[in-house]
């Protein structure tokens, strides 16, 4: 049996709302350690991987590891029907592995709403990716910035064109674009420390200058999720997809892997 409870408006609900513009169906794996979700957008440009450790939920129980496909858009629609103050329970029993039960309980416990959502096949949304600890050292540059600043950069650039070029070297981290009506270049002088301050742009890992071109549509989606958190961490490599990461509590994370645009 798997069962988690959370308050209406919790971070999981916020994240599910924020990923809707990219994914419809997600593969969810549950273990005693927590709730993880993987999803691939229909164009195979963005892979999303998140892990919510058990301690971020109001209560969490998972007797046996389980994996299920969830139609995220339908689930979010159901969750939206909850009222302020409701406690939301998500449950799957071993007897019935065909659907997931979502329950809302009013704060005074006088009203309960039960809903069943059918599970779907989401096996194609599983991707074999290395453990992050192995991958981090493969990125040429990793920097952190306030997520509000990241969103602002993406919005400012998308006025001019659909693409952004992110360049990182020891001296500067820049976001630039060039379109028919003009160009925009936003430069940040980074701090260099392993312990980034919340309000600044910090270069945490640097093995050499790197630049990548990315579609701003996907970057804005990443930025939307990141604004649920204070800071966003961005990794660039010419051999790996761009990585956008936000930390959830001590051990949790939400990571986007975005394929770049490349000139043939």
């Amino acid at each position: 049996m798997f069962e988690l409870t959370m308050a209406k408006g919790s971070i999981l609900q916020g994240v599910l709302e924020a990923i809707l513009d990219l994914v419809n169906v997600a593969n969810v794996d549950c273990s005693s350690k927590g709730f993880s979700l993987q999803a691939l957008d229909t164009e195979h440009v963005v892979f999303l991987s998140l892990f919510f450790p058990s301690e971020v939920f109001r209560s969490y129980r998972c007797d046996e590891d389980c994996s299920m496909g969830i139609a995220i858009a339908d689930m979010v629609d159901l969750l939206r029907a909850s009222n302020d103050g409701d406690i939301i329970t998500i449950k799957v029993t071993d007897q019935n592995f065909e659907d997931i039960t979502i329950t809302f309980e009013s704060p005074d416990k006088t009203k309960t709403t039960d809903m069943d959502l059918q599970l779907v096949d989401a096996r194609s949304h599983r991707l074999k990716i290395s453990e992050w600890h192995d991958m981090e050292s493969e990125y040429q540059a990793i920097f952190c910035m306030p997520s509000a600043q990241f969103m602002l950069n993406c919005k400012s650039l998308s006025v001019i064109d659909d693409d952004v070029v992110i360049r990182v070297n020891e001296e500067v981290i820049s976001f630039s674009t060039k379109g028919k009506s003009g160009c925009v270049n936003i430069s940040h002088v980074p701090n260099k420390t392993d312990n980034p301050e919340k309000a600044s742009v910090t270069l945490t890992h640097m093995r050499g200058p790197v630049s990548l071109t990315l579609n701003l549509r996907y970057m804005k989606s990443c930025a939307k999720v990141s604004t649920l958190f204070d800071q966003v961490k961005i990794g660039l490599s010419t051999k790996l997809p761009l990585m956008v990461e936000c930390k959830i509590a001590e051990k949790g994370y939400i990571r986007y892997f975005v394929a770049p645009k490349i000139t043939e």
Binding site: E43, H44, R123, L127, K128, P241
Partner: peptide, 14 residues
Amino acid sequence: SPTQKTLDRFFQSS
């Protein structure tokens, strides 16, 4: 102009 790549070249689908 640059072409959008997919993730298939980076990750192996299971």
